[in-house]
Nucleic acid binder design. Structure first.
Lengths: 353, 353
DNA sequence: GCAAATTGCGCAATCGGTTGTTCCTTTTAC
DNA sequence: GTAAAAGGAACAACCGATTGCGCAATTTGC
């Protein structure tokens, strides 16, 4: 009965309309100047600390500002010194379950650094290969720089940014020349993984991976091949199934692995790993008894599997932090390293025991 | 060998530094005016279409603009008419696997509407209950309005926005008075679900749900109770386990359901449903034979379960679209409905067969 | 004690647009 | 044919900050 009342109340409320009434008695730098009997130049200097100003008046201004909650208008400030105090954050709009939390955590790093510099983050989603949103924020000069996550081998966003002259940093690697990149050391991560597993006596590997149009997958593929090469004759065989975009293609790859008595399956991301694990469970194949499994990211979507999955783990927040710092350095004219590789962590778990 | 060369090349590249050299010969409205021998007023009016201007000169201006790719400086434009051409998008920084894709798809809707109005989206993440990022963009007046996703029962962000006078719209519902809300009709969705299941002969239900501090969970709880109430004596018993934040608490709830011979478990979100399904699988309990299961969102994280899971599904993009349109209407002074409820879709699948 | 150097502060231009007002020209009305 | 109305374009103020430059007052140097 209580609920029913509640419900009818709600229905009634639905038809209520509201509209905005503006008042906005926003205080400007002129107001502050007038109130204190000084020029706005003085107020500006008190705040920025630039130029010549006596400590006394500076204090007086700061007190007034604090007391009456004056905040400089960022738009006006931006106009005066040609800055927007925004950076763009380009993310794939169609990112999967693995990517999404990864980039969100990247963004935490970006966000922290940006806030410290009084910058905010403007978002630009890229669907399929449509970069019109990115073009907009660049052409409209709504950002001072851009950070790009997940690059493709032939990445139109990166090419566009490069020719536009807009400063930008790529999280991950890029095939385009002369681009500032912050990436994890996938190559060495893969080498170490194969090496460690080899020491455990594994002699046959398979790599099951996503689209080779993504730079990250290509890099992991390289690292995997390189790692196996280093193991030399000790590895009897290896199989590679890249460009697995659907669950079916992954299942097919797994079937071939089983048939070929592959001892260890390495997945290039956790979504693919999820498919692999489901297929193995379906076929009643024991992990790690009959086949061992390793993946990347160590993300939450694999949390519920037993045994837990050996992973190469990165620190997405660190990627974000470093990328954003690098971007600011670059914008402010400092020299920055063109390509910087961050570390990784090997998390050995039950699936490769 | 090829790879090794590649690798050393890469290492060498890592130490290369780059730095920005500015040139930026950006063309301004004055340049256009001068080139055409008209005043900048004329150029401005040609573009905006406001004021009196002959069709001839308008054409002339537009042609020049197109040819030389003139783009008005949005910051300057914003300063002149006190707009930022940005809207804020507040999302929980710690959102789970279900929330994240949901809000991303909301954002697609928001983004589309915003772009059509020449607006961009500024992001503000809320961690725990820390709304300092939101405060920043509001105080710095970097946005003309804000859209808030996932509200808490006692939501500091919403309270803050309300007292700040910044226009905003909530996706979902809010407990704060007089707030513009766009939500799905959870109440009726729940009622319909219980009703349909009841018709199938189910007599005992359980609801396993997340934190009651989230408005959406509270609403679903209400709808569930209301639905059962309407079924009256036909329902022999029902159990409610809200505030399940951990996998353990979900498992515990499931155990009790099994022991109590509950015929159908309803989950308030797909993450919880995942836990429920894992627990049921672990205990070897058959779905839908021994117990039926239903959830919300119909999200991808349940894609790999068999049988597939009956869900109440919403259209997140529509939520975003409507929210953003409403926000623009409100900002421009139009009257808007205070609370608007959007539809839902019942997806009956194997888990309730 | 006087010139030079330093300090403190304000004037006014500037960033790149928008818009109310004015002024001149053309069109309309009767 | 003349007054009124409408049309077209420019002037200049304005949005709210920053900053080069100039001037007066104070401090320093010898």
């Amino acid at each position: 009965m209580a609920q029913e009342e509640k419900n009818t109340t709600d229905s009634a409320l639905e038809n209520i309309t509201v509209h905005l009434e503006k008042e906005q008695n926003k205080i400007t730098i002129d107001d502050v100047a007038e109130a204190l009997g000084v020029s706005k130049t003085t107020v500006s200097r008190a705040i920025s600390g630039k130029g010549r100003i006596s400590e006394g008046t500076r204090q007086r201004v700061m007190e007034y500002i604090k007391r009456y909650h004056y905040r400089p208008n960022v738009v006006a400030k931006g106009l005066a010194n040609s800055k927007t105090y925004n950076i763009g954050w380009v993310i794939p709009g169609d990112s999967g379950l693995t990517d999404l939390p990864f980039f969100q955590r990247c963004m935490i790093g970006v966000s922290e650094v940006a806030m410290a510099e009084d910058y905010d983050i403007l978002i630009s989603m890229v669907f399929e290969r449509d970069i019109s949103q990115l073009k907009r924020i660049v052409k409209n000069r709504k950002v001072d720089g851009v950070i790009v996550g997940r690059t493709l081998v032939k990445d139109e966003g990166v090419s566009y940014l490069k020719e536009s002259g807009m400063p930008f940093v790529v999280i991950g690697s890029s095939m385009v020349e002369d681009v500032i990149q912050i990436d994890n050391d996938h190559i060495n991560a893969c080498r170490e993984l194969t090496s460690i597993l080899r020491i455990k006596g594994i002699k046959s590997f398979a790599l099951i991976g996503g689209g080779m149009n993504q730079v990250v997958n290509q890099t992991r593929y390289q690292g995997f091949e390189l790692g196996l090469q280093e193991q030399g004759a000790a590895v009897s065989q290896s199989r590679v199934y890249m460009d697995c975009e659907s669950e079916q293609s992954v299942e097919h790859a797994v079937e071939e692995c089983i048939r070929g008595k592959v001892e260890c399956i390495v997945c290039t991301d956790d979504k693919i790993c999820q498919y692999v694990l489901n297929k193995l469970a379906q076929d009643g194949i024991d992990i790690p008894g009959q086949v061992k499994v390793a993946s990347f990211y160590n993300s939450a979507i694999l949390d519920n599997y037993h045994p837990s999955i050996t992973s190469l783990q990165y620190d997405p927040k660190e990627l974000g932090t470093v990328a954003c710092k690098t971007l600011f350095d670059y914008i402010s004219g400092k020299e920055v390293q063109r390509k910087r590789l961050l570390g990784y962590e090997m998390i050995l778990k039950g699936s490769t025991q």
